[in-house]
């Protein structure tokens, strides 16, 4: 007998006392919890996102589409980065004003090569206001998972309010589980020394989140 059959057989025998139950899964689990906490306007939801990101030590910047290239240039200059990793389809205008060398992540790039790059800039799939979380799903404006991991400085651009949801339940509805997902809530941290939170272990120690309101500037331009 294979271990597969052995384990499945043990499970069935272990449950011999449980009466046959044809209740559907949907009926078996009451979901009386909230879809989101509190009642907020779209603007307030974006404010909450900014507040919670900052609470977990992400550096938050707000700008519009027009100012975004200048802001990115300034952030990279302040950091003193000579090179910056970019995903395959980063909107070209984001980096239009920035000076550092753009490094493309290729399948053949080794982790050691990526380790020499100082910063990385990406978009995101969505952001969650209640928990101060950004979620990456490996889309072409975000790239492979490793590029947001190895460099010590990550700039993540969130389009507000389109990419912002209030809560974890709303986030899961909008995400595709077949894509590799990375949920990021603040820079790398640990609670392993005396159960107290310290920022900065293996992931990027500096996380800058840029909330860019695209529509506002488009309207101004019109």
């Amino acid at each position: 007998m294979s271990s597969r059959e052995r384990i499945l057989g043990r499970v069935r025998r272990a449950l011999a006392d449980v009466p046959q139950d044809d209740t559907s899964y949907e009926q078996a689990v009451p979901r009386e919890y909230l879809r989101e906490h509190g009642d907020r306007s779209v603007e307030q939801t974006v404010d909450l996102l900014a507040e919670n990101l900052a609470d977990y030590r992400a550096l938050v910047h707000r700008t519009d589409a027009e100012e975004l290239p200048n802001l990115i240039m300034r952030l990279l200059a302040q950091r003193g980065s000579q090179s910056v990793l970019v995903p395959p389809e980063l909107p070209p205008e984001w980096m239009s004003a920035a000076g550092p060398t753009r490094v493309h992540d290729r399948a053949a790039s080794t982790p050691h090569e990526l380790d020499k790059v100082e910063s990385v800039i990406t978009g995101c799939a969505i952001a969650i206001a209640e928990t101060g979380t950004i979620v990456l799903d490996g889309s072409p404006d975000q790239g492979r998972r490793r590029i947001t991991l190895v460099p010590d400085h990550h700039i993540c651009v969130v389009r507000v309010p389109d990419q912002v949801v209030s809560s974890v339940p709303q986030a899961l509805e909008r995400l595709d589980p077949t894509r590799p997902l990375t949920w990021i809530s603040g820079p790398s941290a640990t609670s392993d020394i005396e159960l107290d939170r310290v920022e900065g272990v293996h992931g990027p120690r500096t996380l800058e989140v840029v909330l860019v309101s695209g529509r506002a500037s488009a309207e101004e331009n019109a």
Partner: peptide
């Protein structure tokens, strides 16, 4: 567990992804 709204990193993967991981 850590008394946080959300932990810093959560990874989710489904099988393998071409050219990622």
């Amino acid at each position: 567990s850590t008394a946080e709204r959300m932990n810093p990193y959560t990874s989710m993967w489904t099988g393998t992804t071409d050219e990622d991981g």
